[in-house]
Design a protein around this nucleic acid. Structure first.
Length: 303
DNA sequence: TAGATACCTTATAG
DNA sequence: ACTATAAGGTATC
């Protein structure tokens, strides 16, 4: 067992682990007391969260918690650099916030959840989890990813318990549609199977998007089955370092209606350009994620 | 090319 | 209890 900690004060802009992993941007972290997580009950503790990482070709469990001004981690390997990468601890939140527009909904969201960072999740699990996200509630999307891991993921033993890594493209490509439907994926089941097959066969590459300009990268990702522009934006933002991506979901569309009506251009491409500019450009996706979490948590103006 | 509709399943509202 | 509606949309026509 290896363990270490990172001082929160050493980071530019602080850190809020719970907001970061429970804000609906990542479905790859589980709280150890997962029952409370599933009910999304208010929680202000210092619980451990776990995920799996691939290090030197093997899967390992990584556990993280925030306590007493520290980010503590435990793993079977030296995982400090993984923690920094996955939780974007090198992002300068002060610099990022400075680019955000001086609008109440944006500034209030930043105030309320200050320390929330974007995640840098691995591309394939991000692809699958956001294919699953269509017309789904956050808690159920998370439950579906847990079910996929449990059913198809490699077992990993750590600290006396058995965990499951996220399934490989090959394993999900080999799953049948009915197996996936049994996990509650509904009409997303064939999308998951076919997109996993595209990755496994090398028919399309997630990594290739990195080499493209933002809008071309988004277009590139829509070749996966079950991936439209919104899901493509989620993959770019939460996995591929395109921090300007603003997924136009139901929450941000409501925000546009109420607070940025001039940005509604009637179609995804043009509305996307307008809201990205309105949200500060380079880091527009950061502002989007804060606002999404803020509104979804019941803040903002009720109807 | 823009617009309408079907789609799995479940939680929540009324 | 029972039905309608909506949930981080996409594919198809």
């Amino acid at each position: 067992m290896e363990r270490d900690h990172i001082d929160t004060e050493s980071l530019a802009g602080g850190f809020d682990l719970q907001s970061t992993v429970e804000s609906g941007q990542s479905y790859l972290w589980d709280r150890e007391d997962e029952q409370m997580y599933e009910s999304e009950r208010a929680y202000g503790g210092d619980a451990w969260y776990w995920t799996t990482i691939r290090d030197d070709g093997e899967q390992h469990v990584l556990r993280v918690r925030q306590r007493d001004g520290h980010i503590e981690w435990e793993s079977s390997v030296d995982a400090g650099s993984h923690v920094r990468r996955l939780l974007r601890l090198d992002d300068d939140l002060d610099e990022i916030r400075a680019t955000a527009p001086d609008r109440p909904v944006v500034q209030d969201a930043y105030d309320e959840y200050w320390g929330l960072r974007l995640v840098r999740d691995p591309p394939f699990p991000t692809l699958i989890s956001f294919i699953c996200s269509a017309q789904m509630r956050v808690a159920r999307i998370h439950g579906m990813q847990r079910a996929l891991r449990q059913q198809f993921g490699e077992a990993v033993t750590f600290d006396g318990s058995t965990y499951h890594a996220y399934p490989t493209p090959e394993r999900l490509a080999a799953a049948s549609e009915s197996e996936l439907r049994e996990l509650g994926l509904g009409y997303r089941a064939p999308y998951v199977q076919r997109s996993a097959q595209m990755v496994a066969d090398g028919e399309a590459s997630l990594g290739d998007a990195r080499e493209l300009a933002y809008e071309d990268a988004r277009e590139h990702l829509t070749q996966f089955v079950g991936v439209g522009q919104k899901v493509a934006d989620c993959i770019l933002l939460f996995s591929l370092d395109f921090l300007e991506a603003v997924p136009l979901d139901t929450w941000i569309r409501t925000t546009i209606e109420e607070y940025f009506p001039e940005a509604d251009r009637g179609n995804y491409d043009d509305t996307s350009r307008a809201i990205r500019e309105a949200l500060g450009g380079e880091y527009a996706g950061y502002a989007q994620t804060y606002v999404f979490h803020y509104l979804r948590s019941g803040n903002g103006e009720p109807e």
